[in-house]
């Protein structure tokens, strides 16, 4: 890390699905790797996630979703962050996201997409480099 203050990471669960195993494991893995981690809990609307990002002054947001609603919800989150002046906050994502959707998400600026089977080490190095 470039400075002594650890990066602040928001792990958020947009949509209505309650599958939080991945989100919690990543949250804990990042915390154990030295980051400050805030986890929102499940069933967050895009507005709630933007608000949490503003309040917590985060450097990056990890979005975890397994319901298949990512293409509907992620754009709203990205727009909301821009409106709130947080265009510099990096977004990464995980859950059940088909490869076919990566291009559309990357166009939104969501460049780190971590599917099933990803190692925590990969996510930690990604977050280290942002």
């Amino acid at each position: 890390m470039s400075s002594n203050t650890p990066k602040r990471i928001l792990i958020a669960k947009p949509g209505l699905d309650g599958h939080d195993r991945g989100a919690k494991v990543v949250a804990r893995g990042l915390r154990d790797a030295g980051f400050e981690v805030i986890y929102t809990g499940i069933r967050q609307t895009p507005e709630m996630i933007v608000q949490a990002a503003v309040q917590e002054d985060v450097d990056a947001i990890g979005l975890s979703i397994l319901s298949g609603a990512h293409l509907d919800l992620f754009p709203t989150i990205v727009t909301g962050l821009k409106k709130a002046g947080l265009e510099d906050v990096k977004i990464f994502a995980g859950g059940i996201i088909p490869k076919q959707d990566y291009e559309e998400l990357e166009a939104l600026g969501i460049k780190g997409i971590f599917g099933p089977g990803t190692s925590l080490g990969d996510i930690v190095s990604y977050v280290n480099e942002i």
Binding site: D17, S67, D72, L73
Partner: peptide, 10 residues
């Protein structure tokens, strides 16, 4: 509104 994107998905 909260159902946006979720209708019929799972």
């Amino acid at each position: 509104p909260i159902a946006l994107g979720e209708v019929g998905k799972v």
